[in-house]
Design a protein around this nucleic acid. Sequence first.
DNA 1: CGATAATTTGAGACGTTTCAAAGCGGGTGG
DNA 2: CCACCCGCTTTGAAACGTCTCAAATTATCG
Lengths: 249, 249
Amino acid sequence: MANLDVETTPLDTLSQLEPGPHVPRASDHVSQVLNTYSHAYGVAAILKFEGDDSASIYCALSGWLAASKSMVDGGRQIIDVVLPGEVMDLSSGYGHTSSVQIETLSHAAVAIVPHAVWARLRETTPEIRSAQTATNAVSLSRIFERMLRLGKGTAESRIAYAMIELCMRLEVAGACRNGTFHLPLTQQVLGDFVGLSAVHVCRTLRRLGRRGVLSTEGHMTVVIHDAGALADIAGIDLAYLRREIIAAR
Amino acid sequence: MANLDVETTPLDTLSQLEPGPHVPRASDHVSQVLNTYSHAYGVAAILKFEGDDSASIYCALSGWLAASKSMVDGGRQIIDVVLPGEVMDLSSGYGHTSSVQIETLSHAAVAIVPHAVWARLRETTPEIRSAQTATNAVSLSRIFERMLRLGKGTAESRIAYAMIELCMRLEVAGACRNGTFHLPLTQQVLGDFVGLSAVHVCRTLRRLGRRGVLSTEGHMTVVIHDAGALADIAGIDLAYLRREIIAAR
DNA sequence: CGATAATTTGAGACGTTTCAAAGCGGGTGG
DNA sequence: CCACCCGCTTTGAAACGTCTCAAATTATCG
């Protein structure tokens, strides 16, 4: 957690990236810019501390990022995760300090683009502009859904919701087929995301497993068997949620 | 909670409003626009349901508003509150549907300004533009702080944080002096804000009272006696928090 | 002043956390 | 290639915090 290995070797695997809708595959120019500012990181590398100036956007070219906050007594809450192909723009329009810490959850290639550069890109590329507007909106909606379950909501509904949300988002990037997807997270980290202890994440996951709703294989590969039941437990309507938290293409 | 009394009598008490920094007292033009679109509501009036189109901004001229979400089983979480003089712009830049419900927490005069109008106002009034940018940033920071405590954080730290945040925000509007301020909220509503049951809000408030950290008078008038102790319980640094969650003037 | 809503307090149930120990599993170095 | 080691998962048992239910008290509003 105090790891800070910054192997800032420019990444040349960018072309392998299957971009989500937020990073239109369109213009080579965009790819070029992302490539220029890309860096490779190990697991749990801290890209930015809370309180640092936030003057860049973060695009996960591969791997997962997290924006988190911590309490003095050590507890950590993950505010949002950034999946491959997604962009996190903390400072939508202001040059303030960051109220969250940015870190990698897995090995990751990250494009850290200065705001000035990104703004210029946005001006010259209408697709980027509209995509980002939509992205900001759905990000907020997702945070609100999670917040609702953090406040009112059992362990089961938090886990169920998280699985549904991550599945839907990964589908966009083609990283989820037939309800099967891999999470590069330990149960500890998943707990930091949904507001539960690692032990209770384990128990909850296994309880859902015993009921046949989902199953896990190896290190955090999840298979959703009964999406309807999972949605009931999460307390959401799948179609409504998709409209709410996935950016329209 | 199902109340929907819409007494849309245009409000002429606007001039009484002591505007916060978000609504620069400056141009009469702004006041005029707000006045044009202002309506008076009773307690618990629902201004917008979750899922409705969101094509307006909400400015609390007097009274408090809340943005909330509810679970199917009835639990409600208040995502954010809007204090007198503050503006809530859900759809910063997109014409989507709202992912939250907007309602009044008290009697309130609310300016509901269509986006098109507000956008024009923003273009012609630089102060509005920059104020709104700053407002958006601090709103997010506050939500993140609350989210952290919703996930990790005891009842005491949630209540303590809420009191500090509300006190700081009310100071801006001149509605808090020497740590004394009034909350137009029942303990039930406060519970919906901090993610606790009404009963536990009561217990926590009284426990803090017994320790001499704060006291309450009548219906939710709060007096903070020991801000330092309260900040410790909330797990924050007062100076840092103020920079983070209060818009620079 | 009476009706109604909100607060306060107690007691018990429930869900989650913590602590602890026992199984995997994957990676590394011998 | 095997054995070891370390981190992650799994499970149990007990402690803790919060919720629910219920009743008494206090405030508010008409």
